[in-house]
Nucleic acid binder design. Structure first.
Lengths: 202, 202
DNA sequence: GATCGGATGTTGACACTGCCCACACATCCT
DNA sequence: AGGATGTGTGGGCAGTGTCAACATCCGATC
């Protein structure tokens, strides 16, 4: 009834509508409120229509999470290649997209069950490494700590830790940002000095 | 029927049995499988008995999570006061008690709704700071970044980040342990030198 | 252009869940 | 002895995920 307005029997792009609706509900009311029936209701279809596009509720959530990783990746790319800016972007995503962030890195989904989700996650993280280290890495497969830079790994852990602490409400965004900025400058120890040499934007 | 064996009508210590049963199910089948009815079934009581001890499913989960924080605290205390050992203990908890860890730091529970849970969390984290910094801090209330040591905050974020990455399966335990150990020695930069001077056990 | 197959959406049903109600039982206090 | 109170029971309701059978539409093929 929206995109191509065929006959009102076939939706047009129900899969897209379901993902959008699910994200909307996720953002407003949390992951617990995302039910197949409610999402179907929002999309204006019967309670079983979603099963033509997602094999289960988990699969729908996996789709939403995968798109979350795509957005995270886009934010990282847009942040430029300075470590501090990358960290800020990561943190901002965790705050602005809190419910989605918690879905992406939570216990609800087992990434092994959803290859697309796993790929999206790896892709985002490899992008982070590629930007931070200023070199090209292949995508796909699990994160290999021997491939990813040791510096990037450490930076990732710090930022990820702060992001979770903030998302959980254990720490204020201000405190985390301050600590993160201080760490970025205060503790460089350039084992992988090449990546740090470039002045970068901001 | 267990502790004091009164009349088999009154359970004896149902609250305890419910918490134990819930933790058991949580460990074996994940948080999604923890339902009030199933927990009641395991405890051998009617489907409504749990409501005499927990006002909702969330409240039961909050109780389980609070006990998780107590166990985490115990592990930290037992680990001694060397930073590396503390980090390893934190990481070990995330791996061994993965479902509980994810419940404790996940989006399922809003800590603001459960004061006991919030207190348990703060208590564990303040214990971490107290051990790491070798000084006494007051307990209760949210974590104050001006009270907690800057060094501890940074260490906490790193360890917490690695713990989540491992728990999510994004990183192997070995890689995280290695990176953590390397970081513990490689990047001291003792702003808060007092805490590090003591040789400590192990 | 008619026909048929596959993709997509619908209706109905079942088992399960959280939560509310009224009721039964046990214990304790006066 | 006799309520008052805490604790467990049984029934019921609305909501959910999922399955099976059916309806409808689109596009390829004759």
């Amino acid at each position: 009834m929206s995109t191509s307005d065929r006959t009102a029997y076939h939706h047009g792009d129900l899969r897209r509508a379901l993902l959008d609706g699910a994200l909307e509900i996720l953002r407003r009311e949390g992951v617990g409120a995302v039910s197949l029936r409610e999402v179907a209701r929002v999309a204006g279809v019967s309670h079983n229509a979603p099963y033509r596009h997602f094999s289960s509720r988990e699969a729908l959530l996996a789709g939403v999470a995968a798109e979350g990783f795509h957005r995270l990746r886009a934010r990282l790319v847009a942040a430029g290649n300075e470590l501090t800016a990358l960290g800020a972007a990561y943190l901002a995503f965790a705050v602005v997209e809190r419910p989605c962030f918690l879905l992406m890195f939570g216990s609800t989904l087992c990434k092994a069950d959803f290859p697309d989700l796993a790929a999206a996650a790896t892709d985002a993280l490899m992008t982070l490494d590629r930007i931070a280290a200023g070199r090209a890495t292949s995508t796909g497969g699990p994160v290999d700590p021997d491939v990813i830079g040791a510096d990037t790994l450490r930076a990732w852990a710090i930022v990820h830790g702060f992001a979770h602490l903030v998302a959980d409400g254990q720490l204020s965004l201000e405190a985390a940002s301050r600590a993160l900025a201080a760490d970025g400058k205060g503790c460089p120890e350039p084992r992988d000095a090449v990546a740090r040499e470039r002045p970068a934007g901001t």
